[in-house]
Amino acid sequence: MLVATLCMSSSLAACMRHGGYEPHPDGGDPERGRAAIAELECGACHRIPGVPGAWGQVGPPLDEYSRYVYVAGQAPNVPDVLVRFVRDAPSIAPDTAMPAIEMTEAQARDIAAYLYSLK
């Protein structure tokens, strides 16, 4: 009964296995990604759960990011796109206000892995 009530009041999805697509970038490590997000100060613009101080309101909040269908509203949210986008946003969305940020390919993979761990 309690479970049922909880399921209905929060999100039913949490109580059901849903369909299938779960994006994972090859070789990305969510924990290293969390550290990279903090180091690169992504939280200055975005709200990112699990990253201390990431309360930015310039860009959209990234809660439950793995469920989002599109990156920057312009391209499908799949690992290759996201890995490129976090590092070089204008290469995916030429008109975006999000700047290209200096980081290694490995860091970009880690960051994507962390964002995809947000469900």
Binding site: V58, P60, P61, Y68, Y70
Partner: peptide, 19 residues
């Protein structure tokens, strides 16, 4: 729905469509 961004705290957002 997770197709477009969540429209919360909107007055604090700096950009429309990131542009």
């Amino acid at each position: 729905s997770y197709v477009g961004p969540a429209l919360v705290d909107w007055s604090k957002r700096k950009y429309v469509a990131g542009v």
